[in-house]
Design a protein around this nucleic acid. Sequence first.
DNA 1: CTGAAAGCGCTTACAG
DNA 2: CTGAAAGCGCTTACAG
Lengths: 338, 338
Amino acid sequence: MVTLKQIAEKLNISITTVSKALKDYPDVSKKTRKLVRETASMLHYKPNSFAVNLRTKESKTIGLIIPEIVHHFFSSVIKGIISQAEKKGYLVITLQSNESYELEKQQIELLLNKRVDGILISLANGTADYKHLSEIIENDTPLVMFDKIAKVVKCSKVIIDDRKAAYKATQHLIDIGCKRIAHFRGPLLPQNSIDRFLGYKQALLDNNISYDSSLVYLLNDMSFEEGKFYANQLLQDHKDVDGIFINTDLVAIGAITEFNKQGIKIPEQINIVGFSNWFMASVISPSLTTINQPGFDMGKKAFKILYKEIKDKKEKKSIVYRDEILETDLVLRESTKN
Amino acid sequence: MVTLKQIAEKLNISITTVSKALKDYPDVSKKTRKLVRETASMLHYKPNSFAVNLRTKESKTIGLIIPEIVHHFFSSVIKGIISQAEKKGYLVITLQSNESYELEKQQIELLLNKRVDGILISLANGTADYKHLSEIIENDTPLVMFDKIAKVVKCSKVIIDDRKAAYKATQHLIDIGCKRIAHFRGPLLPQNSIDRFLGYKQALLDNNISYDSSLVYLLNDMSFEEGKFYANQLLQDHKDVDGIFINTDLVAIGAITEFNKQGIKIPEQINIVGFSNWFMASVISPSLTTINQPGFDMGKKAFKILYKEIKDKKEKKSIVYRDEILETDLVLRESTKN
DNA sequence: CTGAAAGCGCTTACAG
DNA sequence: CTGAAAGCGCTTACAG
C-alpha cells in the first residue's frame, strides 16, 4: 500500500507538504500541489483510513440496530438510512437485535467499542430497561431512536403518531357502519402497541361506543400464525363482531387467510383494517385497507437528524433533541366497505 | 476516554505492561495482571479501535454490496451474513447498488478506501464489466460473490444451481400434464436469468416438447406490474398455454393477480410455478408453487467462506477459491394441479 | 518480570 | 512556501 512517505521520497519533499497538497491547503505552491496530485494518482494512493480515524477521532461510520431485518417496514427503513448516509459520506454498520434485550445490549457495546460516530436504534420488544441507552449518551455518542422508542430516554426520536393513526383506522370502521369492533393488539411493551390500542379505545369513546375489553386480543409474536389463530378464536367468542382493527399487516393477512378458509365474507360480514401497508397488503385477496407507515422516509429523517447532531457535536455546539412525527394515511382497499 | 497511559500513570507502571496485562501475556506477574484488570474495569477502559486497527492493519469489518435491500430474498441473505459475522466478531457495512453498475463501482471504491477486511457482493443487473471486481482482488482483499455472480471473476462463489432448479420447475409442469408451457424470463444479463431460461428449455427438449421462442417473454424490471402486463399479453398471444414457469415470485404474483382479475382459473386453465419462495407466495390466493431459494443459508455460507479466506490470508496461507452450490427444492402449492 | 523505544500512517501547530 | 516535530493510542521486538 502506498503511503504519504513514499510519495514524499519519490518527489524529494516532506511528508507534511504531501499531506497538505493532497488536502488542497492554500499554503502549498500550485506547482507542488499539481506534482503531488499527479504522483498520488499515478501510484494509486489511498489514504489509510485507520490512521485518519485515529488522528481525527471519527470514522464516518454509524451503527444501526434493528429488531428484524427480514421485514418489509424495517428493510425500507434500512434502505432510507443507508441511501441518505451514503450521500453524506457515511457508512452504516447494521446489527439485528432479534427482539432480544440481551442482544441489543451487547450490540450497543460492540458499536461503542467500534467508536462509531453515532447510533440509530429501534428497540426490541423485550427492552424494558434503558441503562444501555443511557450509556450511549454518557459516552457522548449521538443517538437517535426511531419507530420503537422509549419516551423517557433523552435523545432525538423519529416516530409516527401511532395513537392518531389507530384512531383514524378505527374511525374509518365506525364511519362505514361497524358497531362491534375488535382489536388485535401487540404485547404490553413496545410503546407503539400501547399507543395503537389507546387510539382504538379513544375512537370508540368519542363515538359513544362502549369499550368492551373482551374484544381486545393481546398477541405475543405478531405472526401470520397468530393472526389465523385469533381470527378463529374471535369467531368462537363473538359472532356479532363486524370490524377488526389489527395492529400489523402480517397478522391481518393471517386473519384474512383464516376468514377466507372458513367462508367468512370480507368485507360483507367483517371489515378489516391493518397497519403498516406492506407490499403484501395490496396483493392479498381481498386486498387490505391499512395505515401507510413511511419506512423509507423515517430512515432518511432519522439519519438526517443524527448527521446534524454529529456535526453539532464536532463544532461544539449544544445539541437540541428533536421529536419528529411523520404523517401516516389510511389506504382504502377491498377489506373494508365502499 | 480512558487510555492505557492513564491506567499506567495511575498504577505507576509502564504502558507496555498495562497493554500486556490486558492481553493476558504470560510474562506479566499474576499480581500486576490482576491489578491492571481491576483498574481497567473500574475506569471503564475500552481499547481505542482506531489505534488497534492501525497497528494490526485489520478492522474486523467487512463490506456487503447488494442490489436491493427491500426484497425478501436479499434481506434474508443480509440477515444470514450479519448473524454469522457477529458470531465471529465481525461487523458488516451494507451498501445498496440499486441494480446500477456505476453505483456498484463507486461503492467498491468506498469499501476499499475504508479498508474492510473482505467484501461480499451480489452483482447489479447492469453489471457487464468486471474491472471493479478485479481491483478488489488486486488490492488483496478477499472477495466472495453470491447469487448474482460473474463466472469469469476469479474468487469464491455461493450460488444455487439455477438451471437445475428451473429444470425441476418445468419438469413439474410437464409431469402434471402441461403441453404448452410459457416462460417469463429476466433480462439478458444476470447469469441466473440465463440459467433459468436454459433449464426451462432443456426440460422441454428432454421431454420431446418442441421449443417455441414465442412462448418466452423477456421482462426488464421484474416487477409486479410487469407480471400483470405480460400475463395479459400472454392471454392475447396464446390461448392454448396451460402452464407458465416464471423467473421470480413477485412477477408470478402479478400474473396471478391479472389472471384472477380476468377470471382465468388457476390451476384448472393455467398452472403457474414461480421462483424464490417469498413469504408472499404462501399467502396469495391461490398460493404459489415455487422454487425455494435458501437466502439465509446462502448468507451464512458466503460469510463463512469469506471468513476462512480472511484468516488464511492473515496466516499467509494460499487461498483456494470455492464454488458452493446450495440445494433448492420445489414447494408444491395451489397454483399447480394435484 | 518490567519497561524504553520504535512504529503503524496520518494531521496540524509552529518555526523559519 | 516548506518542513521538522509532536502526537493520536495502541502493539511488540528487544534489552535488562
